[in-house]
Design a protein around this nucleic acid. Structure first.
Lengths: 136, 136
DNA sequence: TAAACAATGCAATGCAATTGCAGGCGGCTT
DNA sequence: AAGCCGCCTGCAATTGCATTGCATTGTTTA
């Protein structure tokens, strides 16, 4: 299993340090998007800054994508296979008001929204808030 | 003109103080959504906290709605006539990466997104980022 | 092995949001 | 009219998250 993670890192040109392997293992084991604080809570012996930079590195290299769900803290989730994090690849995120978890809904693509003249779309973010399946 | 604003406040059960009238006048004169810092810059003699609470009051009473455009600072824009700030009323917001302004696109309603079983939608936020008409 | 570079850890800072508390002002009651 | 009360305002202080600088350690490579 760790071998797979190792390969995942290598494929994205990220040096597989112990910390990164552990962080990646944690992220991929979660069904929901994780915040820096989540990660910090999971590895209370690790330094918050290191975890912060680990997430940043993962994001830069296209291993995870960041989600701003409006809670004030950024969440991160694994990118799908072959995800380019391009606008066409962007999917919907769901934030549960009860359990406060953020979930990727990769099945639903964001529909194309007509823009006024001369407006150019570069990124798009769609967050739906409500109650998730486990909480309702 | 100020009379209209006064009425707007009264209609929403907000006591029309001088500060509130000025703040509302400023907000309604802007073509774009305003942040607390914008307001602070416009009235540098007023206290930031008072302006903060003014915006909060406006939001609670349904006079303005808040937009989290992902910049880290919350923006506020006037609600449309008869807007209930309900999911059905939510519209798309556009953030320009060049001029850093946030604009309401009330013409485009957010399409319905299919959710997994037992998921209940309460709010939805759709922010498109790119280049606005004035900047392109 | 030594130099070069990357990753880590600690400290400190910046920025936005938020709360507590005290003074002030107006409205309402008696 | 006097006084009470509640809302508005302003100042101080705190929190929380994101971010950077710098020194140290570990790893790669010539």
């Amino acid at each position: 299993m760790l071998k797979n993670l190792d390969k995942l890192l290598q494929d994205k040109n990220i040096r597989p340090t112990a910390m990164r392997l552990l962080a990646l293992e944690y992220i991929s084991s979660q069904q929901t998007a994780v915040s820096l604080s989540d990660l910090e809570a999971a590895f209370h012996r690790a330094d918050r800054i290191t975890l912060y930079r680990t997430l940043k590195t993962f994001e830069e290299k296209g291993l995870v994508h960041s989600i701003m769900d409006g809670t004030g803290s950024v969440k991160y989730a694994l990118c799908e296979e072959g995800c380019e994090c391009a606008p066409e690849d962007m999917h919907v995120h769901f934030f549960c008001n009860k359990c406060q978890e953020t979930i990727c809904l990769p099945k639903s693509r964001i529909p194309k929204i007509p823009l006024p003249d001369n407006f150019k779309q570069e990124e798009v973010s769609l967050v739906i808030k409500g109650t998730c399946g486990s909480c309702s």
